[in-house]
Amino acid sequence: MPTSPSEPLPRLDLTGDLTDLLVALVDVASVSGDEARLTDAIQAALEPLDHLELVRDGDVLVARTQLGRAERVVLAGHTDTVPIAGNVPSRTTGSGDDRVVHGRGACDMKGGVAVQLAVAAALTEPSRDLTYIFYDNEEVEESRNGLARIGRERPDLLAATFAVLGEPSNARVEGGCQGTMRAEITLTGVAAHSARSWKGSNAIHAAGPLLERLAAHVPAQVEVEGLVYREGLNAVRIAGGIAGNVVPDRCVVEVNYRFAPSKSPAQAEAYLRDVLDGFDLEVTDVAAGARPGLDQPVAADFVAAVGGEPQPKFGWTDVARFSALGIPAVNFGPGDPGKAHADDEFCPTADLHTCRDALLRWLA
């Protein structure tokens, strides 16, 4: 079972086996809002490292070198997970370098956190100054996001020339990220007893044309700085009706639009309103995407050191926060992003080694 607050903090061995480190991280349950115990364990593991200055702000922990280098790089990762679904404690399959760690957060994104910690311990004299950020509440609403809060209250802690987010990316570079927009479309009708339905107007039935339009919509594929982003527009939630014998007079359909980073939020909203013209639409949440920025010298240097062909990031990540600050940022972490939030989420040992070794090669 997950460790309880009354138990001693788990010991994180930052210089030992990477798979064991990931197992230790996964076995500390840290669902959004409950990251304190894991942050305590990370802090305890980093405190003996004399080359790092630690700053704790709530459940955000920042560790950084102060070597006076010409450039500073941020390595960031969130410590929270989506709710557990019978997948903590972890289990490990395979052997040697073919081992796989299964469990909540193994992929999204404690694998990336394990890599951060291993790099932090190994690099006492990096070629660039480094800031490691371990933050809370990434998997929930924007208002609770720890990185966003630090950006508002302590922007000096985010200052850098380049940032790497350890989000799962199959251990290859994923540039930028999509923007995301949520909106609600309200359909109205007239309530009536279902035995005399002709006296009313069914709001749920009125959603039919909207759903048909969404189903027929062909998402765009947009090239941005050499990477092709596939957009998406989907109904993700529907609510209506108050009882089994009442014709509903109201139905709300929530849609999610994932748009290419070449679009601003205003352009994305204009596009959404055009596609859904004729329906009562209210935007409830929006986050801008991030252009890849791989043409920046420091980003090009990183890609060259890591190797492989950069891919677009499908989904929104906190690279967008750094992009908004004018800091080029990429996603680079272990694990398959398609397994993020899945009940059978896992992370291969091979990916852990690939990411750690690439970062050491670039920064040593």
Results as ranks from 00 to 15, higher is better:
Thr39Leu: 11
Phe162Met: 05
Gly58Ile: 06
Ala160Gln: 00
Leu49Glu: 07
Pro334Gly: 01
Ser264Gly: 07
Ile84Phe: 09
Gly58Gln: 12
Ser264Asp: 07
Gly103Gln: 00
Val60Trp: 06
Thr3Asp: 14
Met181Leu: 11
Ala290Lys: 00
Gly232Asn: 13
Asp13Gly: 05
Ala114Tyr: 03
Leu360Pro: 05
Val100His: 09
Pro10Trp: 02
Val100Glu: 04
Thr15Ala: 15
Leu165Ala: 08
Tyr257Leu: 12
Gly200Arg: 08
Ala268Trp: 03
Thr39Met: 12
Val88Ala: 10
Ala300Trp: 13
Leu22Ala: 02
Pro328Leu: 09
Pro297His: 08
Ala203Gln: 00
Ala203Thr: 11
Pro48Phe: 08
Pro337Phe: 11
Thr39Ser: 12
Val23Ile: 03
Ala24Ile: 03
His102Gln: 02
Ser95Arg: 14
Gly103Glu: 03
Ala29Ser: 14
Ala44Tyr: 08
Glu282Tyr: 06
Gly208Phe: 13
Gly189Asp: 10
Gly226Pro: 09
Arg291Trp: 00
Val236Tyr: 03
Thr284Ala: 04
Ala358Pro: 01
Ile242Arg: 09
Arg64Gly: 02
Ala183Trp: 00
Cys251Asn: 01
Gly166Leu: 15
Arg99Thr: 06
Asp295Val: 10
Asn137Leu: 14
His217Gln: 11
Gly315Glu: 09
Asp295Asn: 13
Glu125Leu: 08
Gly58Asn: 11
Leu272Lys: 05
Asn170Leu: 13
Leu147Gly: 00
Ala304Cys: 10
Glu139Pro: 09
Gly77Val: 00
Glu53Lys: 12
Ala266Cys: 07
Gly278Ile: 01
Val224Leu: 06
Phe332Arg: 02
Gly146Met: 09
Asn137Pro: 04
Asn234Lys: 15
Gly338Tyr: 08
Ala41Met: 03
Asp344Glu: 06
Ser6Gly: 10
Leu227Ile: 10
Val113Asn: 09
Leu211His: 13
Leu25Glu: 00
Val303Tyr: 05
Leu52Val: 04
Ser95Lys: 11
Arg152Lys: 14
Thr124Leu: 11
Ala260Asn: 03
Ala324Tyr: 02
Gly151Met: 13
Ile204Ser: 06
Val246Gly: 10
Ala29Trp: 05
Glu282Thr: 14
Leu363Arg: 07
Asp59His: 14
Gln296Met: 13
Val73Arg: 05
Gln311Thr: 10
Gly176His: 06
Gly105Cys: 02
Ala63Arg: 01
Gln267Ser: 13
Glu139Asp: 13
Pro334Cys: 01
Pro219Gln: 04
Leu227Asn: 04
Ala350Pro: 01
Thr15Phe: 11
Ala24Met: 08
Leu359Glu: 00
Ala260Cys: 07
His78Asp: 02
Asp17Lys: 07
Val62Ser: 04
Leu67Tyr: 04
Asp344Arg: 02
Val26Ala: 09
Thr65Phe: 10
Ile133Val: 11
Glu174Ala: 13
Ser30Ala: 15
Thr79Gln: 13
Leu294Asn: 10
Gly146Val: 08
Asp136Tyr: 06
